[in-house]
Design a protein around this nucleic acid. Structure first.
Lengths: 158, 158
DNA sequence: GTACTAACGTTAGTCTCACTAACGTTTCTG
DNA sequence: CAGAAACGTTAGTGAGACTAACGTTAGTAC
């Protein structure tokens, strides 16, 4: 083997990701999802929020007040995790949490005026972040992408 | 308000996910990715493997032996996590880990015959799992999906 | 040749997210 | 009226992404 070949050999495959790995949809999904999460968390972090905050506020705005269990079902956040999220939102006066007089097992969660203002801000932040996330795709491709993901999600959640 | 209206009202928005949430690409990505991860981990778990095992074995098969740091770069697995993965693979005699005599900081990791056999099995398992994952999409749509994801990933990793 | 820097393998630890188990309380159902 | 189910809450698990630090070894600059 020549010197050159040896040198080339030393670097051969040093950074290359195997093709069979790179092409797997599951791997692509998890990598892109990780990037997406990082992007969203950084952006939302800058306005003292995280994605769970947005989910809860959007749910309250769109479908009205509800119990913690209801919010849990609407957002997909586990009810055990919901406790902490609502603590954070209540601390910031973005939601109000009061005992339900008609059913004393429950709390009624309501969005506040400040919460609505915050939600509008988050919506703008997220719009920008999604522009960044989907930057390499055309408008038509973005629609296609969202549609494919939606079909996959629907299929795997019945 | 009639009885019926009251009853309907009680269930109003109980399970509905808000539209602005459901349509966000970031949310779709993380949900589909979670489903995908669950599917892959369950399937690989049945043959005593997990996705990191596949990544390392595929990298060894495709680009030959390498140090732990090299494998780390090829697979995207952190070198601190690589230690444990290689312990698991070595325990199962799927790879061999020997000190590099030319550079005593390094270990040289090599895939064994048994490792190659195992990798072939994992490839089949993963093919089936991906069929399940992408079931609602046509062949053309699957290609499109992979292509869109690849472009996003490339863009966000330079 | 001797300092400085960098790379290596390893241990330990952080954070987020998805998810389970168990608890006391309250409400619904048979 | 008894048992099952729903509620909010606390605690804990496990995987994955990621950081910090340590001792050892190798390459680089003077």
């Amino acid at each position: 083997m020549t010197r050159k070949a040896e040198a080339a050999d030393m670097h051969y495959g040093e950074l290359k990701t195997p093709d069979r790995l790179r092409r797997r949809a599951s791997r692509l999904l998890s990598q892109v999802s990780t990037q997406s999460d990082r992007l969203m968390n950084e952006g939302l972090g800058r306005v003292d929020a995280r994605k769970w905050h947005y989910a809860v506020l959007a749910s309250l705005q769109e479908h009205g007040p509800g119990s913690q269990a209801t919010l849990s079902r609407r957002t997909g956040i586990y009810r055990s995790d919901m406790v902490g999220v609502l603590n954070e939102l209540a601390e910031r006066d973005l939601v109000e949490r009061v005992p339900d007089l008609d059913d004393r097992r429950r709390n009624v969660i309501t969005i506040t005026a400040q919460g609505r203002r915050h939600l509008r801000r988050l919506d703008k932040v997220l719009d920008d972040l999604h522009d960044e996330l989907l930057a390499p795709l055309t408008a038509a491709e973005r629609d296609q992408f969202v549609q494919l993901l939606t079909r996959l999600l629907d299929h795997h959640t019945q």
